[in-house]
């Protein structure tokens, strides 16, 4: 049973999801350890490639676990990994959402929720900075990041425009 890669994927990612406080990206080092060191499913370089692919594709970045599952055991592996990453955590979030609905309006809960906002927004800034640094291989990439920041901040237009311009500039100059 413990030799079955589907089972190993499910148990491994369910466990990782339970320590993923701050989001799926918080546990990328832990995923790397599971996939490369513990099970030897792929090399460090392959892991980095899959992570970059998941970042470039639309959807939650945590879907890198789906790519890992695909690499290990095909479609069944993809489903096992994503369900393990989302199932237990989702049930916990659902239970908490129910509790929150029951407590709606409690003064202390309002304070707690307002208090978590600056941490959430500060971490959005932080992830943007880290991604911009990783992307800044040429000066043009920095220009694209800065221009995209200003466009999204100062206009109401769809960010798809800057992603499209980024793709074209990347194809021409990067």
């Amino acid at each position: 049973m413990s030799e079955d890669p589907l089972w190993q994927l499910a148990v491994g990612f369910a466990g990782i999801s339970m320590i993923a406080i701050g989001g799926g990206i918080a546990v990328v080092p832990e995923m790397n350890r599971l996939v490369v060191d513990v099970h030897g499913w792929m090399t460090d370089a392959r892991f980095a490639q899959l992570f970059a692919l998941a970042q470039a594709a639309p959807g939650p970045n945590v879907l890198v676990v789906g790519l890992i599952g695909w690499h290990v055991a095909g479609l069944a592996g993809m489903l096992a990994a994503v369900l393990a990453m989302c199932g237990p955590a989702g049930l916990l979030a659902y239970g908490f959402a129910r509790l929150r609905t029951r407590l709606a309006g409690a003064a202390w809960l309002r304070v707690v929720e307002r208090g978590l906002v600056p941490v959430a927004v500060g971490l959005i800034f932080s992830s943007g900075i880290i991604l911009a640094q990783a992307a800044a291989v040429r000066w043009l990439a920095v220009v694209v990041s800065v221009g995209s920041t200003l466009f999204v901040w100062r206009t109401e237009a769809s960010p798809l425009w800057v992603l499209g311009v980024g793709a074209v500039l990347g194809a021409l100059f990067l």
Partner: peptide, 9 residues
């Protein structure tokens, strides 16, 4: 290029 723009977004 998409990665640089997404970071700015």
């Amino acid at each position: 290029g998409i990665a640089a723009a997404a970071a700015g977004m």
